[in-house]
Design a protein around this nucleic acid. Structure first.
Length: 215
DNA sequence: ACATTAAGTGATT
DNA sequence: AATCACTTAATGT
């Protein structure tokens, strides 16, 4: 049972009856930063609705390298989970709590029902899928055209948005792992960005200047 | 002072 | 853009 806190967050998105349903069927879960929420091969039985915090979604390639796919921020949901759920498929992705998160878990059995019954649910689902699809398309063509510099900037922006700070505590190696490239390449690109006055580098730390966030 | 780990760099493919 | 080989700098013990 979910407390009425969700009313304030979703009253503009969902119709009142649907909010009641969410309260009746949803389970509020609190997950600590760093904990894995969904792993490869897990059967998805619930739809996560992120109430607060951020979830990091990544995928593993054939060589076992992990590649960051996208983040799910508060008030969003995971597009993969909708499709997995409806088809009863196993997870192709791994979801880790980037920071402490609160999630409302919706059991998948009520999904079909809500899709028919509530227009607002249907458009919410469609919208999250559409948004994610567009974002993935962007990522795909930046990979295809090997514009690693753009990916890196995008990554830094996302990180600072998530942590709500212009100072990121990351090593070059960590960044390289998430973008599935080598440390040397990241070091060089960061150095270049530093020369362009877009950021300053320290050991284990990067300070981003505003223009990079706005652009 | 020494070892360890992060970051910088030139050369090569 | 990736890899290698090496240097330099920062940090922990």
């Amino acid at each position: 049972m979910v407390e009425s806190i969700i009313i304030s967050k979703y009253k503009n998105v969902f119709e009142p009856e649907l909010i009641n349903e969410i309260e009746r069927n949803g389970v509020l879960m609190k997950i600590e930063a760093g904990q894995t929420i969904i792993d490869y091969g897990d059967l998805i039985r619930q739809i996560p609705l992120v109430y607060s915090g951020t979830i990091k979604v990544s995928r593993k390639n054939e060589q076992g390298h992990e590649l960051l796919l996208y983040y799910v921020h508060s008030n969003e949901s995971c597009a993969m989970s909708f499709t997995c759920c409806m088809m009863n498929r196993f997870s192709e992705i791994k979801a880790v709590a980037e920071e402490d998160v609160e999630i409302i878990m919706i059991p998948n059995k009520v999904m079909d029902e809500w899709m028919m019954k509530y227009a607002s649910w249907k458009s919410f689902v469609m919208l999250t899928i559409q948004n994610r699809f567009n974002e993935l398309l962007k990522t795909i063509d930046s990979i295809a055209f090997q514009k690693l510099d753009e990916r890196l900037i995008h990554y830094l922006k996302e990180k600072s948005k998530t942590s709500n700070s212009a100072v990121l505590n990351l090593t070059h190696q960590q960044i390289a792992d998430e973008l599935a490239t080598s440390r040397v390449v990241i070091s060089r690109l960061l150095k270049q960005l530093e020369n362009e006055q877009k950021l300053v580098l320290y050991r284990n730390q990067i300070k981003i200047f505003k223009p990079i966030i706005e652009s």
